[in-house]
Design a protein around this nucleic acid. Structure first.
Lengths: 196, 196
DNA sequence: GACTATCAATAAAG
DNA sequence: CTTTATTGATAGTC
């Protein structure tokens, strides 16, 4: 062909190794690199005949995993050899046995409940992610307006502290106002402050 | 230099993806490809801001691992979400009794991991709370953050009612969580609820 | 470990 | 998903 044609593509461009801002690009890059990573892992398995397990949580917190021969068998093996910590940042300790006297069934109940709580926490975490990503939209609530049911212990602890402080201030202010309006009738409603 | 030199290297040659026979080659290939794999993984983390964990057992059965932010946190999270099985060869089930035949110790391990995960999730949620609170800029505050001094009697009255309701819900939730984590040590901090 | 020629992985566009 | 142009990973070697 005698026709000149401009480059139909810039081909592969170098990208800086830093958090990708553009959401669509991030999604594509994650997909490509995840499959590339899994491919590399499978090649490593075949070439060297080793066991491997990879677990990734996508930007949307969806779990992906690769394992040879199986994810769980490799993880079991790894978790069963705590000295693996010397090879990486994996630091672990064998904690005490919780509730050693309990029945397996009881443990299962507790475990299931804890897992459910965990699910709720994670879901809430995701929602918070979405919220902060969505920016200052009109739908934003103050954290204290979030459903109490979805709060964790730590948040409740913080709320308790905040409320105690608030109560102190409220009482102070009420007293101040009461002084100013030295009208006894109004104050009567606040005599039961200590019932809080 | 005027000296001719023959090609000092054949460069990279393609190798078949099959078990490497030569032990020395296998060793060096494992090292190179393992580090390459971990590098790819870290890039994926940086680019996409995701959590990842890799566990490999070398040809000599030595464990190597890579994890961001931590191997164990990612594995805990993964093991706590058995429905991740749909994404890979990891097969599990969401039955009522988990691992009925397992020892109490095993259950305890899993439970401990799940609890740790729960803690991590809660902490993360709290950090997000802080973020979104701070992100509102100095201009906008939640009403309860407004100076108490500027409130009139009516607002204080309303606040009192709101706080009573809040307190009721908080206590309810704390009790719920306390029930779930029937671990006495943790609950001790909440025994003084009635001091409010 | 380091070097270098090759080839596979992949960013961007279709 | 497919194509294209480039970058980056790495097999062989010292």
């Amino acid at each position: 062909m005698v026709m000149m044609k401009k480059k139909p593509s810039q081909g592969r461009q170098k990208i800086p190794i830093a958090k990708i801002a553009k959401s669509s690009n991030l999604q594509v890059t994650f997909c490509k690199r995840r499959s590339g990573l899994f491919k590399k892992a499978s090649e490593l398995c075949t070439l060297c005949g080793v066991e491997i397990a990879i677990v990734v949580f996508s930007p949307a917190n969806k779990p992906f995993s690769f394992g040879h021969p199986h994810v769980e068998s490799v993880l079991d093996r790894f978790l069963g050899t705590p000295k693996s910590s010397i090879d990486s940042d994996f630091t672990s300790q064998q904690g005490q046995d919780y509730m050693s006297g309990s029945s397996v069934h009881e443990l299962n109940m507790v475990f299931t409940q804890t897992q459910n709580h965990l699910e709720a926490e994670k879901k809430r975490g995701q929602e918070l992610d979405e919220m902060s990503k969505a920016g200052q939209g009109s739908s934003r609530r103050c954290w204290w307006e979030n459903p109490i049911d979805e709060m964790g212990l730590h948040e409740l602890e913080m709320m308790k502290a905040a409320m105690k402080e608030l109560k102190k201030n409220v009482i102070k202010q009420v007293n101040k106002i009461s002084m100013i309006q030295s009208c006894a009738a109004i104050n009567s409603q606040y005599h039961s402050l200590d019932e809080w």
